[in-house]
Amino acid sequence: MTEGALYFLQLVISGIAVGSLYALVALGFVLIYKATDIMNFAHGEAMMVGAFICYALVVAGIPFLWAVLITTGIAMFFGLVTERLVLRPMIGEPQFAVVMVTIGLSIFLRSISGIIFGHDNKIFPSQLSDQTLVFKGLVLSYTHLWAMLISGLMVILFFLFFRYSRVGLAMRGVANDQDTAMLMGISVKRVFALTWGISFAIAAVAGIFLANVMVLNIAICLVAIKAFPAVILGGLESIPGAIIGGLVIGVLETLVGGYLDQTLPGVKDLTAFVVLFLVLMIRPYGLFGKKEIERV
């Protein structure tokens, strides 16, 4: 392999690695949007809280895998509580007001985390991040490999869940039309609660992965903003879309960073948003979203 080709391939692989992290973040967003039509602006904070809890557990001496499991459980419970206290009273209110409530929630959670966990930079003590996998000169770290595996697994799981399970069908029904779903005897409230629980659990997993590759502090919740383009790119309602969106954004970002940063400094961080804008111009419902076309 020539050096140029190797460089390109390595960039693509690194991009997929980062993309799988974005995909994990995007997944939680999409899940909530799919079932409840809400863009959850507190998703980044849910990630952060999950990462902090897991950190606290690992520091307390609980083995990493157990800590992750316990964190997922706590996050799920936390999601249920959030839904009950904050979002349930908002059922039937305009979508925009509900989105705003999640913004309020994000401000609240961020400060509370600052109070409880402190503002210092923490280093996640896990077994994942140290080793790397080297194959013919191409490098991939185990953290990213796990992120990729888990994203893949999630897609399959959710595909099966939405296709075959009763609850999954109920969720799809609610997403499609709340009133009709209610008439069909589906408990919309329960579906909402469950969605938030699952979404928070996924957020926690994403947060743990991010904490492994970055420094764990309050600022980690800002990564969620970087995942927005991935969500929209794939289409707000599509779970495979979220994964593909995440991967596309990750790869493009890394490639742009690898080739264009010299000529256009800082363009790497802009890539996602430009791609998003262009995609929306051509397909206003994302790559895999529900087609609701506006004609003017």
């Binding site: 863009m39 802009l270 948003f273 998003l276 804008f277 929306l280 206003p284 419902y285 994302g286 003017v296």
Partner: peptide, 22 residues
């Protein structure tokens, strides 16, 4: 942005904000 609606529009305008900041 004429063809965009709701949250898609929100995201497009957000991208515009990022581009202006850049």
């Amino acid at each position: 942005c004429l063809r965009l609606k709701g949250l898609y529009l929100a995201m497009a305008t957000m991208s515009f904000g990022v581009v202006v900041e850049y």
